[in-house]
Design a protein around this nucleic acid. Sequence first.
DNA 1: ATTTTCGAGATTTTT
DNA 2: TCTCGAAAAT
Length: 712
Amino acid sequence: METFKTLLKTLTPDQLGAVQATEGHVRVVAGAGSGKTRTLVARYAHLTAALGVPQSDILCLTFTNKAAQEMRTRIADLTPGGSVGDFVTTIHGFCVKFLREEIYRLGYPQNYLIFDGEDMKTVVKEVLEENGIVRRSGIVGNYLDELAVFKAATPYIVRYVTPTQLPGEVPLLAQMILRQRRYFALDFDDLLFFTLHILNNFPAVREHWQQQFQYVMVDEVQDCDKPEWVLFTILSGGYGNLFIVGDADQAIYEWKGAHPELFVGYAPDTDIYLKENFRSRPNIVALADAIICNNKNRLPRTSVTKRPAAGFRTTWHHCRNERLEAATLAATLRALHDRDGFRWSDAAVLYRATYLSRAIEQALMAEKVPYVIWGGVRFFERKEIKDALAYLRLVALDDDVAFKRIANVPSRKIGKKTMALLQGYASARGCSLLAALGGSGVAARNPAAGRLAALVAEARTLMDASSIAALLEWLLDRSGLLEQYRVDTEEERLENLQELVKSVRLYEEDNRNEEDAGLRTYLQDVALYTNADYRKDDDKVKLMTVHQAKGLEFPAVWIYGLNEGVLPSHRTIRERGEAGLEEERRLMYVACTRAMDRLYFSDSEGFNVQNSLAKYPSRFIREAADGCGPLYDVEGPFSPELWKGTGRLIAGLDAPAPPAAPLFAPGAQVSHPVFGAGTVLESDPDAGTVRVQFDGFGIRRLAGSVLEDFQE
DNA sequence: ATTTTCGAGATTTTT
DNA sequence: TCTCGAAAAT
């Protein structure tokens, strides 16, 4: 166990300054690998140990569950008795705690339920279909636009809870809201909005919580959106001690509404910069800086590191196709393990989008490299888990969304027609779908449906007497869900269901003394879980998206799929232009700065991105080369043919990577193999095309790549 | 009338 | 890998 005093001795003067800056508004700009978590933990310990502040008076907010977990572990490690305050948590975790307390006190309905996006979508879809709106354009069944409208209406949703008139001007919206009221469903955003609504409208509650927290600290503030920013601003409003930590260069969530400029433009009483990078070798720090300095919208700064050079250069593998890229990756990982003494778990493979992991998995399996996909399909988002939970929800809450989900799982001959019948009956009588099963006579005609009704009825008699885990096991068995997966020999799904039962049992043990730890509470809690809570940490290579890697570090990092159009994502650039590109560059920066000792790049010709082959290396590779000189070696099991391809592209590093920049500006004199000499009228860098006035052939629109400088 | 099967197409990132 | 829709099978 590390003591607080030993920890203090290891801090730099800057970090110590942050630890001791306890009063007023403090902003810490913490670069990558600057020992930020360490500093936050030390500050927490300083407040409690040196200043004697009770743990319950410190609110320490993080962005992800992982970060909160890490923070809690390290604080516990430092505290005599291993205690950690309740308020070292994620922003959403805080909202849940807050609502638990206030929702009852203020007389809101008690049976609120947290829905995930998929369930919300079901609600929206239902309303639209009842109104005869069926989307046919684009992806069929994609109701994202409507969902966005729905979510924008959240203030109304919160307002209806205190009974007021529904907004009559938007009938469709009103229906959605009514539907949501029936379920009393809150999704992730609603948790925060509801919390803010209460804080804003009930002064006594606000003051109570403001007096609760003498100190508020928030991590990863550059990734906070406006409501989150409002939340911690309100909560720190009592004592005025707000400590925010962030790094604008690592802002990668603008796409989901983060406002890094709130952090950048903040005017604190005290500003502290943590410049030193303790994580990465000098060449990696230099390379990451060389990339990020291309961002215009940025406060210029550079990192320093005292780590000695490792004599290892960043290696870029350019491969002919995806399969070879993955094979090279697998072979290198094997060499790292067998030859260089790295553990498998020392290495991480990072990529821009999840679909890229498929080829990697195949290659790693072939090379017998143990790997784990970090947060692929989350545990509680797996089909079998959601089905199992839907059974619980149906039993406990008579939830129509849950009914729709499992009515035909396993199959009970309840298809579209039967479901439509049930819905007609239910909406006419204002009853639930489950009740309609008996009332409409479907249960009588269809034996399987009858058994479902009986199953739920029987489960309800068991509900209060038995534990949740036992009830779940009973349901899994009697519903035929287990049997279905046994027949289909879906081992993994069976195991997952066992794992779920285990986790429920664990939950019940943990909450044995809580008075409200019933099935309903469990169903509320479970919506917030991720599989991070139930994953063991084996010696395996970790595969994850760059976003998921944020805040982590690895001795060896391989950035895979470094293609123009993939990273940077051509979609982001198309949708958000220069700002999007800069966010992609920050993503690249985050990826590079995860590496401690070794960093690898790879790309391949032949990624199929939206009908165009993204076969060019990412412009970020070129930016690294421009800034740092030739950092690249090319090694590995390449055929001579591949060597040729690689050599060509490395030699081309000094030329602009197509289609990054316009090859020819308007006015340039060019020559074409067929049309001869001409003058460029305009160029379209996005499309890579130019319009040229040719002498004798008129105006033509052409790919810029076929043109050459006009030579006399 | 419903379920199963099969092939095609799509797929950013997350609390 | 997953979802969706159409065709085939029950």
